[in-house]
Design a protein around this nucleic acid. Structure first.
Lengths: 196, 196
DNA sequence: ACGCTTAAATAATCAATGTTCAATTAAAAT
DNA sequence: ATTTTAATTGAACATTGATTATTTAAGCGT
């Protein structure tokens, strides 16, 4: 077969990312296969390389989709909430990671080579999620500490990430921690106490 | 060729783990190859399967070696220190991860299948590292909070891990965080302040 | 010293992967 | 209708993890 053009380029991109995301959510990054994605959407492996150029860019696109879903979930969870918004944000962090286990883990399983810069579109998505926390922190911090919102957001993201990661990779189970979410909330509260 | 027995079984195991650790330290988990390890020590791929049974067990052995080195480094850094031992422990956590970048990252890149239990020898090593922190926390916490040492150690490990992970995977650079270690120390101090 | 048993080690083999690319096909342009 | 252009393919390649029949030599008993 040759040129079919049953689907436009953007349509094809979307099909590949959607199917890729479905795949990676199902089998995880370790067993993800670009060929399998091609097969599932009825195209050949060559087409994926035409559209994305490389395996790495395909993964970045799929992980980008995960970040989109994550941000959407975070904002939807916060929508209409008036109290304890930071706590809700932490809960949402965990909830998303647990529900989208494999997709979330893939965000950290995959790393570009050291000489390859993170694509701007991807950076932007990470920044967007961070900015949600900056915003929520700003609302909660005494105004004299407003300048601390951004650095604190980075540090608290890392803190919650660590707890979430140890939950999903089994470290916490191994160590006997049965309520990691509560521990994460405590650490965040401890940090906030510093700026009272 | 057939049975050579130039090396005893334990010797062979050691050769494979040593070379495997060298490899994974050099190229990272993503580009690690069991065949390459076999080639480097002058044996065939089959021999590795004879000795370790599976790829997974080989990786667990190599990661176990990393945990050994990590624990050793942690204790050696603490040796003779009389003040700020917890702070030194945090620094050592970062130092080891940065110096053994690829080997440390491999600890988290690899995960056994959900139905496969973590080998006991590996669990023991993780526990040992954790117990170091429990010990140091116990020495620092007011005695009325001694019972909090273990749960707090788990949570602080996750906290420091998150900061270390975001440092190595580029997230912190992306977000403009230039002193992640300082941030990690702050979070630990914040947690300690809770138990004064 | 010889032959037998047993275990170590190999090489060949398989299926699957990422990656590349010349050949093919059909849409678009002339 | 013919030519040009671009999309799509599928075969080829190098590697990988994994399996297994076969070969080899060490160790043992006689």
């Amino acid at each position: 077969m040759g040129r079919r053009s049953e689907h436009s380029r953007p349509e094809l991109r979307e099909m590949i990312v959607a199917e890729g995301h479905r795949q990676i959510s199902e089998v995880g990054f370790a067993h993800f296969s670009a060929r399998e994605v091609a097969k599932r959407i009825g195209y050949s492996i060559g087409t994926i390389y035409n559209v994305f150029g490389s395996y790495d860019q395909l993964i970045m696109a799929i992980n980008g989709r995960t970040l989109d879903l994550w941000l959407d979930y975070l904002e939807s969870r916060l929508h209409g909430i008036t109290e304890d918004r930071l706590r809700v944000a932490i809960d949402a962090y965990f909830e998303f990671a647990v529900v989208h286990r494999h997709a979330w883990t893939a965000l950290y399983d995959f790393r570009l080579a050291d000489d390859q810069p993170t694509p701007e579109f991807y950076q932007a998505k990470v920044t967007e999620i961070t900015e949600v926390i900056v915003r929520e922190l700003t609302a909660v911090l005494p105004s004299r500490h407003a300048a601390q919102a951004r650095p604190l957001a980075r540090s608290l993201l890392a803190t919650v990430h660590g707890h979430c990661f140890f939950t999903l990779n089994g470290t916490f189970r191994l160590l006997g921690e049965i309520d990691p979410l509560a521990a994460a909330r405590e650490r965040v509260n401890d940090a906030l106490a510093r700026y009272r």
